[in-house]
Design a binder for these strands. Structure first.
Lengths: 226, 226
DNA sequence: ACCCGGAAAATGGCATGCCATTTTTTTGTG
DNA sequence: CACAAAAAAATGGCATGCCATTTTCCGGGT
């Protein structure tokens, strides 16, 4: 897991970055729920570091939009409303669509083969009903496309937004119909790749991600009612 | 100037945020040149605050991609190469295209009137040869469209990238041909707005921004040779 | 003159302590 | 008992100091 705005190869990990990584993880996993307070001294004692690196980490998480810091009132975990998921995925869809376009344009036989490979594995998992493996491969494919676009700015921007979008692991909760549709959309993307049709790839992928955003929004909405 | 990932209305300014704002400004204005070292104690003395808020500010600037921090080696201002401008504008173009699409879809008579107003003023400046005023209005129009898209995630992401893109004020250096073309592209966008053609608006605006990115890249390239 | 090694200075990372503000608890009064 | 005011505790913001690592400088040997 890198950290800078553009994916840096190496970066000796300084206490503050560790703390930030730990907190990000807890928020994404839901161990820290929205509106939970984050108290510097408490964390300081728990992680056995001083408050200084904690404070620096909190600033970073605030910049990532995961927490909110109020003057003299401390930090709380940001909320994650259904509407926010929709807004996030509206932007994410644009970014991934751009990545799909660029990947198609620069596609080499090797990259296409790797994609066919990943896609095939995902289909196997899906047909065999291994839902967890299917979702893992799904994530791998999305990440592979992003990573292959050769634009570090896009990669970093996407990663930052995905951290917020993934909060709570709602990605794995889908209705069966949507799941079939998602698989079909992946297949459409592969066909666009094979055809070298960048425009088609871009449109298919943007639609796919918007659908995903809508699905997640629905899940969040139904949960917030309960 | 806001700060969070999503534009927050108010946020009592804590020392660290001030320092960050000051440094951002200096980097964008070029007072701090690429590869310049930023020494905590020196800044501490100059701004008359302790090193603690300085350190927090530096972390934020690193997350924004404006500086690079190496363990025990301090912070230096990031470089800004021609290729980076191209990569930045590739992403920015996608974001502004999305904004143009959404603005068209939700366009009210009032918003259209304001846009016509801004556009007309920009044309006046252009025809009268008031280049500075023209560029100011240009920026105002771009920002207005972004602000009008009703997606805080998009707004924040765009702003963060624009800070990097604007470094050095190269936006105001353009060949006359490109300037005419840019004006024509703005006019095309206005027509798409009038027609309520979201697809057209999106495509026109994406093209416009890619052209801008290419122009800036050329300027940067020619400068780095000198 | 050049290079190398070690000492000195510079610099960043973090711990700690003090002060300001906020939040919670206690206490006095009707 | 209710409510308000005041005191106490909690908490964040920042200054300062110490240690580790890096960088710079300087003298001696070839």
């Amino acid at each position: 897991m890198s950290k800078g705005p553009d994916t840096k190869s190496e970066h000796a990990t300084t206490g503050a970055e560790n703390v930030a990584a730990i907190l990000r993880d807890r928020i994404v996993k839901g161990e820290l729920a929205p509106l939970d307070r984050i108290v510097e001294r408490r964390l300081s004692a728990e992680l056995m570091v001083s408050r200084t690196p904690i404070r620096e980490a909190l600033k970073l998480l605030e910049a990532d939009g995961l927490i909110e810091i109020n003057l003299h009132r401390g930090a709380i975990v940001s909320e994650y409303r259904p509407e926010e998921a929709l807004l996030l995925f509206d932007v994410i869809a644009s970014l991934e669509a751009l990545a799909a376009r660029r990947v198609t344009e620069t596609m080499t036989a090797d990259v296409l083969r790797q994609l066919e490979d990943l896609h095939g594995t995902m289909l196997d998992h899906h047909r065999a009903g291994r839902t967890n493996d299917y979702f893992d491969m799904n994530t791998v494919i999305h990440d592979f496309i992003i990573k292959s676009c050769a634009n570090p700015v896009l990669i970093a921007t996407h990663q930052r937004l995905m951290i917020r979008a993934r909060r709570g692991r709602f990605l794995a909760i889908m209705k069966p119909e949507r799941l079939e549709q998602a698989v079909a959309e992946h297949e459409d993307l592969m066909q666009a790749f094979r055809d070298g049709n960048a425009q088609q790839a871009s449109e298919v992928w943007e639609t796919h991600l918007r659908h995903t955003g809508e699905t997640i929004t629905e899940v969040l909405t139904s949960q917030s009612v309960s």
